[in-house]
Nucleic acid binder design. Structure first.
Length: 270
DNA sequence: CGAACCACCTGACGGC
DNA sequence: TGCCGTCAGGTGGTTC
């Protein structure tokens, strides 16, 4: 899925393109993309005005008026694209028809993604939301270190755990570990604090740079305007298993950590 | 508590 | 061509 940078880019794009628009009609082509009762969802969302669009972890949050929050999780292949005119596509799941004739479409090839609507107070009752760790771009290095330094788990598993730090996925975990020179399978509590601090700095850099580059498009990701990102051109290790390290030339190793494909350099990372 | 699987789905790609 | 296995930006559940 889109990870933190991709969801951030989508949220910013939608915030400028759909804020102030009223949702006149909702078309649920695949109602199972809606969490909970689809009927309730349609009731609560239809007729609302979009006040703002933001991001928390990998969730897109649309604040509506009257007060309700529309949360969207894109998982692996979800998209939220704003079209000026109808442009039906194969994997369209939910369409929001806006009052200026434009359409906001949730499309999702693999159908892992979902939409959910919350009334005031309900969002905090949702375990996934409530358990999210801090935003990596809004926390201190001390707080970051504190969340990792006592754990017996492998560092990459912790980076991917949304309860430890929110928004990091497989791409940015591998990229930040490479840049920090840390092996993904290292046990967190065995890593010196200074190296955890370096990891935090590299993670912030890579997330910020990816946002600047409009995110990473491996295959499905598109921003809210339907455009691809460019950060995939700057990958150091992700998707490069067996190819030479761009720093030292060593062939990059590909292993599994936390059930996820993991690429690293056995020379540059220790 | 941590890890290893499987599950949820569709599609792209490589090997034969 | 086509069949088959493998893999993919995520999370959740079960089992050991």
């Amino acid at each position: 899925m889109p990870e933190l940078p991709e969801v951030e880019v989508i949220a910013r794009g939608l915030n400028s393109s759909v804020t102030g628009r009223r949702i006149d009609r909702v078309e649920a082509l695949w109602p199972t993309s809606i969490r909970g009762s689809a009927e309730r969802f349609l009731d609560l969302v239809t007729g609302c005005t979009i006040d703002s669009v933001s991001r928390r972890a990998k969730l897109l949050l649309l604040e509506l008026a009257p007060q309700r929050t529309l949360a969207v999780h894109l998982k692996m292949t979800g998209r939220m694209v704003h079209h000026e005119a109808p442009t039906p596509a194969k994997h369209d799941r939910i369409r929001f028809f806006l009052d200026d004739g434009s359409i906001l479409t949730f499309a999702d090839m693999r159908r892992f993604g979902y939409l959910a609507v919350f009334l005031p107070g309900e969002l905090e009752l949702w375990d996934f939301y409530n358990d999210l760790g801090p935003e990596p771009l809004e926390m201190t290095v001390e707080a970051f270190i504190a969340r990792f330094q006592d754990s017996k788990a492998r560092i990459k598993a912790l980076l991917l755990d949304q309860r430890i730090v929110a928004g990091v996925g497989n791409i940015y975990a591998d990229e930040s570990l490479f840049l920090a020179g840390i092996k993904p399978q290292s046990v967190a509590k065995d890593i010196e604090k200074a190296r955890l601090a370096a990891l935090f700095a590299r993670l912030q850099e890579v997330l910020r740079r990816s946002i600047q580059e409009n995110g990473s498009s491996i295959r499905n990701y598109r921003d809210s305007g339907g455009n691809a990102g460019a950060f995939q051109n700057l990958f150091q290790v992700y998707g490069r298993g067996g190819e030479p390290c761009l720093h030292c030339g060593q062939l990059l190793d590909k292993i599994k950590v936390s059930g996820r494909s993991t690429v690293f350099c056995s020379v540059c990372q220790s």
